[in-house]
């Protein structure tokens, strides 16, 4: 990892997002307004293709750099398919194909979808595909192949997640791909990378929840004193902070492990950790803000709704914990400690 480059990505993302991603932009997406301007700026800043090699027109960063950008995106509830585009373009480029410009959606031939690629054509359907209805192209990874399909070539039934983001059902009927070939990653791996991305977005969102809630508790006065001086509130927030810290530590470690190796153990754990902590974090956050945090007016819901929804994307904690548990069990009880210390499955 190059720390200067990493800092540059993080600074660029933090500045752009905190200036441009206003409450109206986030709420706007929920009302059906695609923030085209914001997307353009994000592309121009090199954030969408953070992990695409320079030779393919990207910013030349690592997967870890992309994850650092996604933590910033989560921290600001950025209403864009940054994870999908970042990973989709990266996988397409790594497979020797040219990634298409514009927002991308991801369909992985594993996560509850029946999608197949054969002879440059794609068939099958997938449910709850984030941002498919606004994407220019859909990147499909299935059975060792990768394909890029123009969204106009797929049938898309629009829907919306409970976080107010596009969540669309996609059907391919022998759709001709713009580009197709052997994939640099398996469908299993693609799903892991997508889970890693969501875990990092969740970490960012959770860190923001901590910031919002601690600040509010210092400002809100009841019984003549700020509520942060009540020990009951202090302990509630400390409890919440431990779960946020754990989510963030796990996501960062998984990103770090994925950067110079496979990291699949860490990724499974990180998405499980984020999923397990999300409800606890959201519940305490809302409790500590009273009615104000329950309004549409306040921005707390930008983060809590995303945490609740993102749990399910690209494998919930139940899915990943079960896979991890099965893999560990196959290795036998006495290899659990060795696997934990190596952060990979040791038989």
């Amino acid at each position: 990892m190059d720390t200067d480059i990493r800092q540059m990505f993080v600074d660029t993302a933090a500045r752009l997002f905190s200036e441009q991603v206003t409450r109206d932009v986030v709420n706007g997406l929920e009302k059906g307004t695609w923030p085209a301007d914001l997307w353009k700026q994000v592309e121009e800043a090199g954030l969408a293709w953070a992990a695409v090699p320079e030779s393919a027109g990207g910013a030349g960063g690592s997967i870890g750099d992309l994850m650092a950008v996604l933590r910033e995106a989560g921290r600001n509830a950025v209403p864009l398919p940054l994870a999908e585009t970042g990973l989709g373009a990266m996988m397409v480029a790594q497979s020797g194909l040219t990634p298409p410009v514009g927002p991308l959606a991801l369909v992985i031939g594993d996560a509850g979808s029946s999608v197949r690629i054969s002879g440059g054509r794609v068939t099958g359907s997938a449910k709850r595909v984030p941002f498919a209805s606004i994407a220019g192209h859909i990147v499909v990874v299935a059975g060792g192949e990768i394909a890029v399909v123009a969204a106009s070539n797929a049938r898309i039934a629009t829907g919306q997640s409970h976080a107010g983001e596009p969540y669309d059902d996609v059907t391919f009927e022998n759709a001709v791909a713009v580009a197709a070939g052997k994939s640099s990653v398996s469908a299993d791996r693609a799903l892991q990378l997508a889970a890693l991305a969501r875990a990092n977005q969740m970490a960012g969102a959770a860190e923001r929840v901590l910031a919002i809630v601690t600040q509010y508790s210092k400002e809100r006065v009841q019984f003549g004193r700020s509520i942060s001086t009540f020990q009951a509130v202090q302990h509630m927030l400390a409890d919440m902070a431990t779960h946020i810290a754990a989510t963030s530590a796990a996501a960062r470690t998984a990103a770090y492990d994925a950067e110079d190796g496979d990291g699949s153990f860490s990724i499974m754990a990180a998405k499980t950790q984020a999923g397990e902590a999300a409800n606890r974090i959201c519940a305490i956050a809302h409790q500590s803000m009273g009615a104000m945090g329950y309004t549409y007016e306040h921005t707390l819901h930008h983060y809590t709704r995303r945490l609740w929804v993102w749990r399910r994307d690209y494998g919930s904690e139940t899915v990943w914990a079960t896979r991890l548990g099965q893999a560990l069990a196959r290795g036998g009880a006495d290899s659990i400690w060795a696997s934990m210390t190596a952060s990979r499955l040791v038989a």
Partner: peptide, 12 residues
């Protein structure tokens, strides 16, 4: 399996 996976996750 899920329980073992979750416990190992917390410990990890």
């Amino acid at each position: 399996a899920e329980t073992v996976g979750k416990l190992v996750t917390r410990l990890w």
